[in-house]
């Protein structure tokens, strides 16, 4: 039986990866919009994003819109795969796999 990926297997980070996984491949989402979709505080979201970034699951892209710095986020390729594997592993555990 697959072990559940400990990086994703925490409610806050599961919600973050699940949200990022709804983006089309090649798309990135602005930090404030992600925060709004998750209903998390900026500090809490930053903490969990750092853990996901450290694991190589999330790409953090810093850019500027005019003079204002903007942070964009996306699942990395390994991150998307890890999320899909995690979901599969959950379904396997629940006996829902095809």
């Amino acid at each position: 039986m697959d072990e559940l990926d400990p990086v994703i297997h925490a409610s806050a980070r599961l919600k973050i990866t699940a949200t990022l996984a709804t983006l089309e491949v090649g798309d990135q989402i602005a930090f404030p919009r992600l925060q709004e979709l998750l209903g998390m505080t900026a500090g809490n979201l930053s903490t969990h994003l750092r853990k996901l970034e450290d694991a190589g699951y999330v790409d953090v892209i810093k850019s500027h819109q005019g003079r204002t710095p903007a942070t964009y986020l996306a699942l990395s390729r390994p991150g998307r795969r890890a999320f899909e594997d995690y979901r599969e592993a959950l379904r396997d555990l629940l006996g829902e796999s095809a």
Partner: peptide, 8 residues
């Protein structure tokens, strides 16, 4: 809104 990249 808030999304940029391929789908834009």
């Amino acid at each position: 809104r808030g999304v940029r990249g391929a789908s834009v």
